[in-house]
């Protein structure tokens, strides 16, 4: 899944872990955009040609992505990845305006044709399921573990967390929200008894030019890096929902708090000044 994964589980047979691992590998193989044989790669190669008929799981993910795109006012968009053709954060340079304009023309969910189960991507467009597959995988693995008898546990896929059940003593899991600027330090510890938690932040991969910091988070509407929170964590009944809520909040800049309040889920926002705001608690600094 491209990031450290941790599985804590109790009360079930060891072979259940093998099944959990197999499920993660299945999703990784199916949706990774770095693998030549993945469905994502096949979808992206189909851009500009005939529509592709997709399986029920992928169709479900696309339906969800469409709903998230609508609800977030176009911020949550699986087609945003193309902007990275223009923004090279390792180069330390701003993108060439012409290249950026070309990339922006290939971004926007409204441009693709999605009529379940058929998807047609216009020439030059790409989809990246990275914005939701990790969260979906966490939820699926947690459900699988519960179904196979796990009495408690937690699936942590690089900060996208789904709770299987409580700790052996019945208490909630304590999860540290790391400091966006000092990676090893926890800024806050929250308790999670059920559901999922996801954190999005501009932890890495940004760049500074002439004292201006450019975050790696790109707004699909403007094509520009977003200036907003340093990180947003959201707790939800499903990790998938938490991920959509936090990712969209990061892309909303100033509008993040209004979006989070509108959703009504518990959230914790770390501002650029490291100030903490939100209803997700308890918070220990």
């Amino acid at each position: 899944m491209g990031s450290p994964c941790e599985l804590r589980v109790w009360g079930c047979a060891a072979e259940v872990l093998t099944a959990a691992r197999a499920e993660l590998e299945r999703l990784e193989a199916k949706y990774s955009r770095y693998r030549d044989d993945s469905l994502t790669t096949r979808i992206n190669r189909s851009a500009g040609s005939a529509a592709l008929a997709l399986d029920a799981e992928t169709a479900g993910l696309l339906d969800y992505a469409q709903q998230a795109w609508q609800q977030s006012g176009g911020r949550f968009d699986l087609s945003t990845g193309v902007l990275r053709r223009a923004w090279d954060f390792k180069s330390g340079k701003l993108p060439d305006p012409a290249v950026l304009a070309t990339a922006r023309a290939c971004v926007g969910w409204q441009k693709l044709e999605w009529q379940r189960p058929r998807l047609r991507l216009p020439e030059g467009m790409e989809l990246d399921f990275g914005g939701l597959v990790k969260e979906y995988a966490a939820d699926r693995v947690a459900a699988l573990l519960r179904e196979r008898g796990a009495r408690g546990g937690m699936v942590d896929l690089g900060g996208d967390i789904a709770v299987v059940g409580p700790q052996p003593d019945g208490s909630a899991w304590r999860i540290g929200i790391r400091d966006p600027r000092r990676r090893e330090a926890a800024l806050a510890v929250i308790e999670l008894a059920r559901g999922g938690l996801a954190t999005s932040g501009d932890y890495e991969r940004g760049m500074s030019i002439a004292g201006v910091r450019y975050s790696h988070l790109l707004d699909p509407l403007s094509g520009q890096p977003v200036r907003g929170a340093a990180s947003v964590s959201v707790a939800a009944p499903l990790c998938l929902l938490a991920g959509t809520a936090s990712t969209s909040a990061m892309l909303m800049g100033e509008g993040a708090e209004a979006w989070l309040r509108d959703l009504g889920l518990p959230w914790l926002l770390v501002g650029q000044d490291a100030e903490l705001r939100g209803s997700l608690g308890p918070v220990h600094s």
């Binding site: 339906d63 969800y64 709903q67 459900a143 699988l144 998938l240």
Partner: peptide
């Protein structure tokens, strides 16, 4: 969002 998420297998 929840309604769309619940339509996914397993969720």
């Amino acid at each position: 969002l929840l309604l769309s998420a619940l339509a996914l297998p397993g969720l």
